[in-house]
């Protein structure tokens, strides 16, 4: 098993794949969080009836497999709209929306966990809605939301393994290509798995530590 035909060049290909995985994750988590926070505040503030259109779209993003979302989006952009957009952009777009769907759920739940009396006290002290949101609700909510958000970001990193369908060479696709060439599935897969594990495990542990530390009881 330790006599591998893998060269330094092949290893470099894996490293590039890993870099692509991290890049796509960073972009989609950044965009998705911004959109998700806005949608979450809107859904919380507007109430269930007015928020139905937003909720429905985000719900679809959570109930349809990512693989199908990606294929569908890619087919729509390239075949229907006939735009020349790279698979990378499509992947970032779809993953951002996917992140936003989960993030809005987290933000809404966290805002609901802020006691209404605290906010009312703020408002009765003469704070505007924006001030109340900025200085009272969001700081309190972020305590509840951050551990779940960390989990979500890791989830997006793991789910970004699917963007091979739109021809982005991230870690999983590079591994698969190398397996086809070198015929050493076990070794290469272990290498790939170790990479994901090494990134995901410490961050997940940190998340659960925060959750324990910051829980209200």
């Amino acid at each position: 098993m330790f006599e591998t035909a893998m060269t330094a060049k092949d290893f470099w290909m894996l490293v590039q794949g890993a870099g692509m995985t991290l890049l796509v994750t960073a972009i989609s988590v950044a965009i998705g969080t911004v959109v998700g926070v806005i949608c979450g505040i809107f859904r919380f503030q507007a109430g269930p009836w007015w928020a139905i259109p937003v909720t429905f779209v985000l719900d679809v993003c959570r109930s349809v497999p990512l693989l199908i979302q990606l294929s569908l989006a890619f087919a729509f952009v390239t075949a229907v709209l006939k735009l020349r957009i790279s698979g990378f952009s499509v992947a970032c777009g779809v993953l951002s929306l996917y992140t936003a769907a989960y993030c809005s759920e987290i933000v809404r739940g966290a805002l609901e966990s802020v006691p209404p009396n605290t906010r009312r006290a703020g408002r009765s002290l003469g704070m505007t809605w924006l001030q109340d949101m900025r200085y009272i609700a969001l700081p309190l909510a972020s305590r509840v939301a951050l551990p779940s958000w960390i989990g979500l970001s890791l989830g997006v990193m793991k789910d970004s393994a699917l963007i091979y369908v739109v021809n982005v060479s991230e870690l999983m696709k590079s591994t698969k290509d190398l397996i086809t060439r070198l015929q050493e599935p076990l070794f290469l897969l272990l290498l790939c798995g170790v990479f994901y594990f090494v990134i995901s495990f410490p961050v997940a542990r940190f998340g659960s530590y925060l959750e324990k530390r910051w829980s209200n009881d």
């Binding site: 793991k158 789910d159 599935p185 076990l186 897969l189 495990f201």
Partner: peptide, 16 residues
Amino acid sequence: ARNTPALFQIYMAFFG
């Protein structure tokens, strides 16, 4: 199971 992609786990079951 929690720290690697599901895709990787399925690959592992098949190719690995």
